[in-house]
Design a protein around this nucleic acid. Structure first.
Lengths: 196, 196
DNA sequence: TACAAATCATACTAATTAGTATTTTCTATG
DNA sequence: CATAGAAAATACTAATTAGTATGATTTGTA
């Protein structure tokens, strides 16, 4: 990693932290360069606009992380129902990257930037579709291997699971307490067990 | 309604529209007074700060509307399971007040203002708790009248339903298409039927 | 009708915003 | 080691922001 590409990456990481905590709109470039200790000249050498940086955060920070935590685990399992539960539990209670009071980075950005920034919507939609497709495929495979009841509709279930996840993260924010996560997880388990 | 209180209410309604569409942070007071055709002097006569207006919108616009569409229907039903489905379907597909591409007003504000504005968090939390309590009580009544299986845990189910609703509104935003609502509703029906 | 209080209008301010213009300092390569 | 281009530093701009100061109108009521 050259010094320059290191500067770029530092900006993206620190900016992500700020945006995850404070939202995109309320995070100013002056704030980003203050916390990264990078000058405005350096910032604008690497990113033509604030939005270009925002898109880069999604593609270069959020996307790879999501690949590891949302996509790969589901691709390497023969038991999607159990894996979905484990994944969700990990994401809500154990993942050090995600914080109760700040919600879900992708969910936050989706709510904030859609529909008013087409570019953001586009890359976020790609992310979401990849997640959704992965869930659907894993359930379809589960049906084929008779781990999942063949009456299950993978698309519907995918929407239901993803929605409830995004939603409960919003509840976590407002209650600022993991109790709601625990209650949610119990009900999620009951729901998932009915898919067997 | 006096002329003054009419001015106040106009500001709140128009500001709500803008904030629902564009978010709170990106809606400026100049924009609000431009669309309401009210002067800055009038605005600041009625509201000491922008945040005071924001809180007023929640208490005087969102709360009463929510009372009518989220609370009362559930209080006047003997069959909560069926009513929850009907309500959700109405909210997603028929309510003229809510728009696919703009999501859920309360969900948007929660995501945007929590945890960074304590005052907003407080009133939003009150709103959410009222909704949650209503669902729980209606399910409890349903258990007592044997419309709902007595193994059902009202608190857990309430979280699950509310979460999935907030979440699917986020999906509606990003897909900008009601297909996801229809798929979600089908799965919601299956889930709810298992509570009988 | 008079007049005090309520309501609204106008013109401002100081801070913050994203972005630019220009110069300086590195860094890789001949 | 010389030098061209990459990378970064500095100082600015124009627009927008929430909020204020002050003056002009309405409005209800004695």
């Amino acid at each position: 990693m050259t010094k320059a590409s290191n500067t770029r990456h530092t900006i993206l990481e620190k900016a992500f932290d700020l945006i995850y905590k404070k939202s995109y709109q309320t995070t100013s470039i002056d704030e980003i360069i203050a916390t990264t200790k990078v000058t405005k000249g350096a910032f604008y050498y690497h990113f033509k606009t604030k939005d270009e940086m925002g898109i880069a955060i999604i593609n270069e920070i959020i996307k790879p992380t999501m690949q590891d935590t949302f996509i790969l685990p589901l691709q390497n399992t023969s038991n999607p129902i159990e894996k979905i539960y484990q994944m969700t539990k990990f994401l809500l209670l154990e993942n050090p990257f995600l914080k109760l009071e700040y919600g879900c980075p992708t969910g936050n950005l989706t709510q904030e930037m859609t529909p008013w920034n087409i570019e953001f919507s586009k890359v976020l939609k790609e992310l979401v579709i990849e997640w959704q497709t992965t869930i659907e495929i894993s359930l379809q495979k589960g049906i084929e291997s008779q781990k999942v009841n063949n009456k299950v509709n993978p698309k519907q279930v995918a929407y239901f699971i993803m929605s409830s996840y995004w939603g409960i993260r919003n509840f976590g924010k407002i209650y600022n307490n993991t109790d709601c996560y625990h209650a949610y997880l119990k009900e999620l388990k009951l729901y998932l067990n009915n898919l067997h």
